[in-house]
């Protein structure tokens, strides 16, 4: 039997265009919010692990009310314990604040294993897994791409290729894309999700020493040149050598 906490973050669909208006990403322009893709692989791993070893899963998210959707989606796949952490006074939280709120929720859930994505698809930081592990005094295996369903070994990248590792509990495992097909909810799951209860908790995350000054669009490249047909390849190779000096 194993108690797993899965950390799920709601992000704009990765196919969405990101628009900066007045120094901030315009979230109102985002039409589709989804569970961050790597987190979906973490959830799938947790589902397989509890199916093989027994136990239960708590899905935890940190976000405003719209983030209930990631928990409902998890509920539709059979997760019964759902926790959303939020305080309406929060806007930009720093790494320390996010990690402390999540670590507190993991402890309240009584989980000995934490599964999450290697990084979120919005902030791309990759701090949450290792940081939560540190606060829990736990080991952390990062960027896992394969696992055995009984949850005993994890495959991680290594300089020489990859390594199969074990980790002592309590532990945090961060997932990259795995070979698992992500399951889709069935009708019963969707019905269950509608009735699922979400436990909304606030937390004291303390103050921050980070000032989030704002967002900007990336620098646009000057337009390049386009050539017709493979007959232009020698000219392009010449430019790569003489103009770009990359050959």
């Amino acid at each position: 039997m194993v108690e797993i906490a899965v950390l799920l973050k709601q992000v704009p669909d990765t196919n969405a265009k990101i628009v900066v208006v007045g120094g901030r990403v315009d979230e109102s322009a985002v039409t589709s919010w989804v569970t961050s893709p790597y987190d979906e692989y973490a959830l799938e791993a947790a589902l397989q692990h509890t199916e093989a070893a027994g136990g239960s899963i708590t899905a935890i998210t940190l976000g405003p009310a719209r983030a209930d959707k990631v928990l409902k989606d998890a509920a539709a796949l059979g997760v019964t314990k759902l926790v959303r952490i939020w305080d309406d006074s929060w806007q930009d939280l720093d790494s320390k604040q996010v990690q402390s709120a999540l670590a507190n929720a993991v402890q309240a859930a009584g989980a000995e294993l934490v599964y999450c994505g290697k990084q979120s698809a919005d902030r791309n930081q990759g701090s949450t897994g290792p940081g939560v592990a540190e606060l829990l005094g736990a080991g952390c295996v990062v960027e896992v791409s394969e696992f055995d369903a009984a949850g005993t070994t994890y495959l991680r990248p290594a300089a020489s290729g990859s390594e199969k590792v074990t980790v002592a509990a309590p532990a945090v495992v961060t997932f990259t894309k795995t070979a698992s097909d992500l399951r889709r909810p069935n009708v019963r799951g969707i019905m269950m999700a509608k009735r699922a209860q979400i436990d909304v908790v606030a937390g004291d995350v303390g103050s921050s020493t980070v000032n989030f000054n704002g967002h900007s669009s990336p620098a646009e490249k000057p337009p390049g040149k386009t050539y017709e047909g493979s007959g232009s390849v020698p000219e392009v190779v010449g430019l790569l050598r003489d103009e770009a000096k990359v050959l």
Binding site: N124, Q125, S127, G129, P130, G131
Partner: peptide, 18 residues
Amino acid sequence: RDVVARIAARRGIPVVQD
């Protein structure tokens, strides 16, 4: 990223990655 995030968490200071 893993090591620096953990040092920051140990020290109770923020981390900014990438």
